[in-house]
Each structure stands twice: as structure tokens, then as C-alpha cells.
Amino acid sequence: MSILRVENLTKTYASGGSNLTVLHGVNFTLEPGDTFAIVGPSGSGKTTLLGLCAGLDRATSGSVYLNDIRLDTLSEDQRAAIRNQHVGFIFQNFQLLPTLTALENVMVPLELRGERGAQKNAQALLDRVGLGQRGHHYPTQLSGGEQQRVSLARAFANRPKLLFADEPTGNLDADTSATVVDLLFELNREAGTTLVLVTHDLELAARTQRIVRVKGGTVVSDTQERKSERVIERANGE
């Protein structure tokens, strides 16, 4: 059973009286535990694709199946429940709730699920990302790298099946980036989560098992296809 299946996905925005199509018939499937990067230049439709996969928006046509649940037929609140059950997020600008402490930020997904022991679990996650002592700090009292680590802890709090990361190192310097990325992949491996990464950074993308390159709203290359092509070529050659 695939964890994410995208079929013929198209997204069109009405803009200034004319229609702007940002995604044209995108298809791909992810298996549980896959790590997957979407790369492409600015404006290529990467973030739109991520948003649609995560159920943050509705496609104009085509469908997204998350854990075999078709998202485009669900209401926004139903999709929110799916997100809370199966999805974690990491954003370029961290997107921590500014009025909540680091610990409380991590607790939110657990509390939304109505889980007991939210505080204990959240504290354990903060310890895991190395910020166990900073739980009572507000986001503005943390550095960019620390904020992104809190965001990592939050993303893994509800033990998601799928983790979406939008330019997770986009706002960080090289050293901090390396730490955060290592942590991201470690946590991902430990939890066995499927990772969907949107990035400009080809080095970061290279750490994933599969890279999809998007340009002008269409998938221009997919390493898995190439891999399978190579496998076929090799088989033919033999």
C-alpha cells in the first residue's frame, strides 16, 4: 500500500482576469519510509505541489491519496484531522506559534489529538533535539537554528506517517543547516517516516532516495524512473 499517491494533479489560479496554471498533470507514488525531494527553480510549482500533497489546498483537477484516503473529496476540517493524525510539517520560516513557549509549541499536535502525557512526550522530544533546557523560552528568545529544532520536535510529536519539509534550511546558515539536516534525517530514520522535502539545495536533495525535478509546473525528471530505466537497460543488456 502506497503512503502518498498523486494522480494527474493540476492547479490553476485565477489571476487578474486570466488563469494561471502552476501544475500540469503531475503523477507520482511514494511508499512508506521513502525519502523524497522536490527540486526546481523559484515559481516552478514546488510549494504548490507540497501544499496539495499535504492537503493544505485543493487541486483544480486530479487527486491526492494520503494513506489511501482521497483528500480532494474531504472538507477542510476533515483534512485537518488527517493532518493531525498522519502528517508533520517543517517550514522555511519555522512557523512556531509566537505566543507559546517552545515546550507548548511541541505539545500542540499531541494535545490536539487529546493524548495523555503530552507534556512528558514533548519534553522528551525537546531533549532529543538538544533543547531540553529551553522549553520555557518563547520563539523570539531562540535563534533560527533553535527555532527550527523546536519545529522538528513538533513535527515528529504526533509520530506522523508523512513529514513535509518546505525549504527546512532556507533561513539558516551552512553550519546550522548541517546540524538541522542531520537531526531531520536521524529522527526520520528512527521514526520510519516518509519524508517529502521541497528545496533548492541539491546537496540536501541528494540525501534523499528519490528526487523529482519540477519546472513550469510539470515534472521534468524523476530519479526513480531513471533508476528503473537503468534497471531495465541493465536487464536488456545482460
Binding site: A80, A81, F89, Q95, L97, P98, V108, P109, L112, N158
Partner: peptide
């Protein structure tokens, strides 16, 4: 903040 809560799965 509301948008973040929504991504985390809070309903409207």
C-alpha cells in the same frame, strides 16, 4: 498563528 494551528490539524 491560526494558519499554523490549521496545518497542525486544528479545525476551523
Amino acid at each position: 498563528s491560526v494558519a499554523i494551528l490549521r496545518t497542525l490539524g486544528a479545525s476551523g
